[in-house]
């Protein structure tokens, strides 16, 4: 059972929950940038939450299925055509053997997730099927998918039982996909935020930054007011995680993504709350990015709330699929 990549799209990779637990060996976590979207796509396919799916960037791939399959697409909505017919995203949809699945360009947002019932069954590397492009690690040495790639997938229960009728329901992408680029991301304090000049500290929260085209899964490069510290900051390398806002000598901040290095030595002027990293994932080059200050308690409350809602949604989807 395979999916053939006919056209890879702009940048399509295999992603699951990544490879935690290896940072001490210099190995980053990688994994889906918009993690809740991956979980919902998997739920819609009846998969365990961390099953490997495709992470699609801006312009989707064209795929040919060599076997019946159920798929679901979440994250940024994009046009989906299966065997020439328009089909919905955020819903389980059936793909018959031999059908071509064409994904178009996203109107807003930057990353979508295509899960397949049973999951992509490429061989895991260090416990994960995530492709880490920057570390050249993962299936196919971490390189993005190309035309001609054949991706095996395991057989799902529904496909095995010959179920082909699509359900009559669809998940509302909101609040899981929020395309409002003026809504600020929550920024936690970090070690060197107090070293910023009073003016730079004010500008960090009052001005809009712009996402630069050279952004990728390692980091989102921002253009905006040049931020300065009162004195030069000398520091030795410390551990980094996605969401970290570093200030290189250029004065233009970089927000780290899932392929960020495990350590870094630039001053830290903020940390995007973990609960908002999926929103960072959906900003495309040219989009605005604003920050609002946030306390750890508020971020944790928001994360807890989202986790409850996500678990409820997953449970609800599972119940509907088995009804």
């Amino acid at each position: 059972m395979t999916v053939e990549v006919i056209k890879p799209g702009l940048l399509t990779t295999l992603q699951d929950a990544g490879r935690p637990g290896l940072a001490h060996l210099g190995i980053g976590r990688a994994g889906a940038f918009d993690a809740p979207a991956l979980r919902i796509a998997n739920a819609l396919c009846g998969n365990p939450r961390d099953t490997c799916a495709l992470e699609i960037t801006l312009l989707g791939p064209t795929l040919r299925f060599h076997r019946d399959a159920w798929i679901a697409i979440t994250g940024a909505p994009l046009p989906l055509r299966i065997a020439g017919a328009d089909r919905p995203t955020w819903s389980p949809v059936f793909v018959a053997t031999g059908a071509t699945v064409e994904l178009g360009a996203m109107r807003s947002g930057y990353r979508s997730y295509l899960a397949v019932g049973g999951g992509f069954a490429v061989g895991p590397v260090l416990g994960s099927r995530s492709q880490d492009i920057n570390a050249a690690l993962g299936p196919m040495d971490g390189r993005p998918l190309r035309a001609g790639d054949l991706l095996p997938f395991a057989e799902s229960r529904n496909a095995a039982h010959g179920v082909t009728a699509a359900p009559k329901w669809q998940i509302d992408p909101r609040p899981w996909f929020a395309p409002d680029v003026d809504a600020p991301l929550r920024l936690l304090s970090a070690s060197h935020v107090d070293a910023l000049t009073t003016l730079s500290h004010k500008l960090l929260f009052s001005d809009a930054f712009k996402v630069l085209p050279e952004s990728n899964r390692v980091g989102i490069r921002l253009a905006g007011p040049v931020l300065e510290s009162t004195t030069p900051i000398e520091m030795v390398s410390e551990g980094c995680i996605p969401g970290l806002l570093q200030l290189p000598p250029s004065g233009q901040p970089v927000a780290f993504g899932p392929e960020c290095p495990v350590s870094g030595g630039y001053p830290r002027i903020g940390q995007i709350a973990a609960v908002d990293v999926p929103r960072l994932a959906q900003r495309r080059p040219g989009d605005a990015l604003r920050f609002t200050p946030c306390t750890f308690d508020d971020a944790l409350r928001a994360l807890r709330k989202r986790e409850r809602a996500l678990t409820r949604l997953e449970t609800g989807i599972t119940a509907r699929l088995s009804a």
Partner: peptide
């Protein structure tokens, strides 16, 4: 999940 030493710091990533 992660116990990652650097020169003078130790980063601990937990599964919230």
């Amino acid at each position: 999940l992660d116990v990652a030493p650097a020169y003078a710091t130790l980063l601990l990533r937990v599964d919230p």
